[in-house]
Measured scan of single mutants.
Amino acid sequence: QVALSRTQVCGILREELFQGDAFHQSDTHIFIIMGASGDLAKKKIYPTIWWLFRDGLLPENTFIVGYARSRLTVADIRKQSEPFFKATPEEKLKLEDFFARNSYVAGQYDDAASYQRLNSHMNALHLGSQANRLFYLALPPTVYEAVTKNIHESCMSQIGWNRIIVEKPFGRDLQSSDRLSNHISSLFREDQIYRIDHYLGKEMVQNLMVLRFANRIFGPIWNRDNIACVILTFKEPFGTEGRGGYFDEFGIIRDVMQNHLLQMLCLVAMEKPASTNSDDVRDEKVKVLKCISEVQANNVVLGQYVGNPDGEGEATKGYLDDPTVPRGSTTATFAAVVLYVENERWDGVPFILRCGKALNERKAEVRLQFHDVAGDIFHQQCKRNELVIRVQPNEAVYTKMMTKKPGMFFNPEESELDLTYGNRYKNVKLPDAYERLILDVFCGSQMHFVRSDELREAWRIFTPLLHQIELEKPKPIPYIYGSRGPTEADELMKRVGFQYEGTYKWVNPHKL
């Protein structure tokens, strides 16, 4: 086992960053958080920038500027975001240094004079007029057009580079997404736009490419001749908990499936790229999406959770019991969808996408189930092999396979070949997804960000279904809070070829 401390991990990262040409360590950078008073800024962006600063992973002359409508001070920003920093008493001095680099400007999102004030403020910072500028839009999409237009007109660096990070949702359907994309691309070049999907920053999602293309053993079996089906799962054990009003506007397909799960599907299904260059990788992902037809209604199961009468606390409440959810809402909190990649490698292999709230566990994984062994000599005792990439929690890679049961006879039983990170790298604290992705933006690497043509294809696949749901308002199937979801989803999976045995229990190697 390799035991690495946080300091050692960050030392390795620093070495990698400083050796590259793309990370300008000594240049002045300004990180501007648009929507600095909001939840995302408070819980994710400010803490992430602090962790990067604490670990010495930001360029040395980096300033952080918050911008929002609320009249706040840096002290206010500190008060609301610091509880999420997880700072230790030993880091007190470092924390003071961090907040000394912070400033805040209040202004409207659609007022040109406010942006001119913001620009004057940035120019007044040390070497601010020639600094590289990175704008993070932690804002609702309704203000994107006004904000990007004003940034472009008043706040661009004339000497350094300018980059803009856009948070999902990128529209509600193909038409609104196209409108937003066309607007942003009329102001910024594609190499300046970073559409963030934080799932692409997760260690195991990034590991998929290495697993596939750096190991000879997987190449020959990664196709329709050997793989019976692919299941991509995202499960949350909690409901909307008072935030249903926002969720109800989008629903589970827009929230998770059309982005996170579809991105994971691309990494499983794509061909080997010409290189690890950002556009070479994204070219292959677009090719996969172009091979997927629009979702067919007979390959869809929609569910909505109801309270568990035997549960406790939140578990007793259904989705419609959330006071922020519109009365009688038919918005799905669970969806199972089957897609097919219609190309030579994957023809006929079902890709089953499942996601839901208020389920029995927290889990995100990719599961490849292989065909049955031909010419069975073990009297149907063999179960199908599976390769599982567990994204969260407890990152893991393992192969479910058959071995001989101890004893006199040739009785096979299920076991696993474990390729888990935790076994080799004991207690290594890896940077989280937002840390990686923000560092990628500083480096100018777009590999783990969504390109406009990729986004367009993703919406093309799901828009007809979303429009049909909005028009017909089908009643989702009720499922109990804390269950596996509607049984109809299991029946759909069985119908397209997935075999669920229920006889195997994964042993978490992190707890051995």
Rank of each mutant, 00 (worst) to 15 (best):
G422D: 13
M402T: 13
L455N: 09
D453Q: 08
R354S: 03
P464F: 09
E312D: 12
V428H: 15
P350Y: 00
L261P: 02
R345N: 12
P464H: 10
V268Q: 03
T503G: 13
G307I: 00
N394C: 07
P406F: 04
I389R: 02
T333C: 00
D490L: 13
Y479R: 04
E457C: 10
A315R: 11
G313R: 11
F334C: 06
N343H: 08
Y434Q: 04
Q380V: 07
L368D: 02
N427S: 10
L430A: 10
R327I: 15
L302I: 10
V295K: 07
V256D: 02
E470K: 06
T316Q: 15
E312P: 10
E361S: 07
T276D: 13
Q380N: 12
Q446H: 01
T333A: 00
E454N: 03
V349F: 04
R456K: 15
P326T: 07
R384Y: 02
D432P: 11
G497A: 10
E414G: 10
H379T: 14
G497N: 15
M447S: 03
H379N: 14
Y305V: 07
Y398P: 01
E414S: 11
S329M: 00
G356I: 06
K426F: 09
V256A: 08
D280W: 08
E365N: 05
I469Y: 13
D280M: 11
V268K: 07
V301E: 09
G307V: 05
K383W: 11
F334G: 00
F370A: 00
S445P: 05
E416K: 02
Y305N: 01
G482H: 08
W506L: 05
Y421N: 01
D322P: 02
G328R: 12
V349G: 04
Q468A: 12
Y421A: 00
K285M: 04
I292V: 13
E470T: 15
K400E: 04
E284D: 08
I377Y: 12
K383V: 15
W346G: 01
L339M: 13
I477F: 14
D310E: 15
H371F: 07
N277P: 04
K505Q: 15
L437H: 00
L353N: 05
R384N: 08
L419P: 01
I389M: 10
N385Y: 01
D440I: 06
T463W: 02
I477A: 12
V496N: 15
V388N: 07
V373P: 12
K475M: 14
Y319S: 00
Y305C: 05
E312S: 13
I292P: 02
R354D: 04
I438M: 11
G502I: 07
I377F: 13
S452P: 06
R384W: 04
D453H: 08
E342W: 10
H260N: 04
L439E: 08
C355G: 10
K475T: 13
N298E: 13
R254C: 07
F351R: 02
P412A: 11
N343K: 05
F449D: 05
S445R: 13
I292N: 04
T399V: 09
K272M: 10
G318V: 00
A396Y: 05
T331K: 04
T276I: 08
K290Y: 07
